[in-house]
Amino acid sequence: MMKCFSVSLASLWVLLALFSLSVSSQNISESGLQQASLPPRGWNSYDSFCWTISEDEFLQSAEMVSQRLKAHGYQFVVVDYLWYRKKVKGAYPDSLGFDVIDEWGRMIPDPGRWPSSIGGKGFSEVANKVHSLGLKFGIHVMRGISTQAVNANTPILDITKGGAYQESGRVWHAKDIAMPERACAWMPHGFMSVNTKLGAGRAFLKSLYEQYAAWGVDLVKHDCVFGDDLDLNEISYVSEVLSVLNRPIVYSLSPGTSVTPAMAKDVSGLVNMYRITGDDWDKWEDVKAHFDVTRDFSTANMIGGKGLKGNSWPDLDMLPFGWLTDPGSNEGPHRFSKLTLEEKRTQMTLWSLAKSPLMYGGDVRRIDPTTYELITNPTLLEINYSSSGGVR
């Protein structure tokens, strides 16, 4: 018997209810009419590389997504966290002092891993190559400002006027806007909130997202601002900045530990994707935990609601199939997913029925035939895009 039947009766109810969804006649080609009108699909580097991915590895992966997954709606390729961290001895996910920042305290790609960024180019060349493959480029970003920038007390850029931000006859710096008491709970040495009530705090955040747009970014995955780490002020202001940029950028929130529909109602209209669970890894316990939360969000009519310049989607996290790394690892992909085939089928089915964004997490360069058939299953992909009834 498939392990999906080992869940609670309440969880089984949501699966049966979701299976009753009918397939609508929505034309998938209409997906470009508004931002995230359908649940976004793509590949994210975290499950297979943690933070260590290099430019060559990323572009190889993008090439494979273009060749094998693009035709199935997988559009985004996303560099997950710490792309600005030097991969040297002593560096790990919560280390301090190994990041590359510019004169304004903004994170920029580590040139050792991202050589095309040398000369102030940032991710521009990487984004151009991704776009040439017919794909969209995404990056992971953290809350507020880095501890490293605060310790260096870098000046704040006024991107509207150029030069340092000045107000009340003074030049403002990182320590003026930082909120050490709001450090990221799971990366306390890394990042902290900024005071969005201050003009300088808003100027700093605006300078970040204007830079991402200039690089050609199409999606930002904004971390440590939702769930247990909720920072509604930062989410609201970032959404405001993104809403007036010339470049459309899909706005995603992650992670979502302890999220409820009531909490999500405050952010769903500001974003396009928002995680409603903690990190999902290749353990049946992680998959099983998604049934009840999926039921709650479906019952609350949250699926496909109005979002930033389009729709917003509760996000069940990535699909940890194929070749993976380990959480918090300094290694690339080195082991195969521990989920059984039945467990993977259950996960892919639930994600599709719940109309969750589908972000594959395994090493796409080494994707095995069974995994490929699963994540490109035409019936499940059609349900993921075109089912109706999940939103009443």
Rank of each mutant, 00 (worst) to 15 (best):
H72K: 12
A91Q: 06
V150K: 02
E167V: 04
D80I: 02
V88Y: 07
K197W: 03
S132Q: 13
I139M: 07
G190Y: 00
L96K: 03
H189V: 06
V150S: 10
A178Q: 03
K87M: 10
V100D: 01
G169W: 03
P115N: 07
V77I: 08
L157Y: 07
S146T: 15
L133I: 03
Y84L: 00
V78C: 03
E103L: 08
M192K: 00
I139V: 14
D102L: 06
K86A: 14
K197Q: 09
H131D: 14
L198W: 02
A71V: 09
L69I: 06
Y92R: 07
K86M: 07
S124P: 02
R113M: 08
W114K: 01
Q75L: 14
S66A: 15
L69Y: 04
W114E: 01
P188C: 02
K121I: 10
V88K: 09
I145L: 11
A178Y: 01
I139H: 00
F123W: 10
K121P: 00
A62Q: 11
Q60W: 05
S66G: 15
V126A: 04
I118L: 13
S132H: 10
G162P: 10
A62L: 14
G97C: 09
G73E: 02
V78I: 15
A185F: 11
C184V: 08
A152K: 12
G163S: 09
S95I: 07
A152Y: 05
G162H: 01
S124A: 14
R106N: 12
F98G: 00
S132G: 09
P93N: 10
A174I: 02
I118Y: 01
S61V: 00
G144Q: 00
M192V: 08
T160Y: 05
D110Y: 09
I101C: 07
V150H: 05
K136M: 06
S124E: 13
E181W: 10
A62H: 11
S193A: 15
N128R: 12
I118M: 07
D102Y: 04
G120S: 13
V88E: 13
R170H: 09
T154C: 06
G169A: 11
N151D: 13
S66L: 06
Y81T: 13
I108A: 01
K87D: 10
W186S: 12
C184Y: 00
Q60F: 04
G169L: 09
T147N: 09
D99E: 12
N128S: 13
I159F: 12
G134S: 10
N128D: 14
Q148C: 07
S193M: 08
W114G: 04
G169Q: 06
H140A: 13
E103I: 10
S124C: 09
G138F: 03
M142K: 06
D176L: 11
H131Y: 08
P93S: 13
R143Y: 03
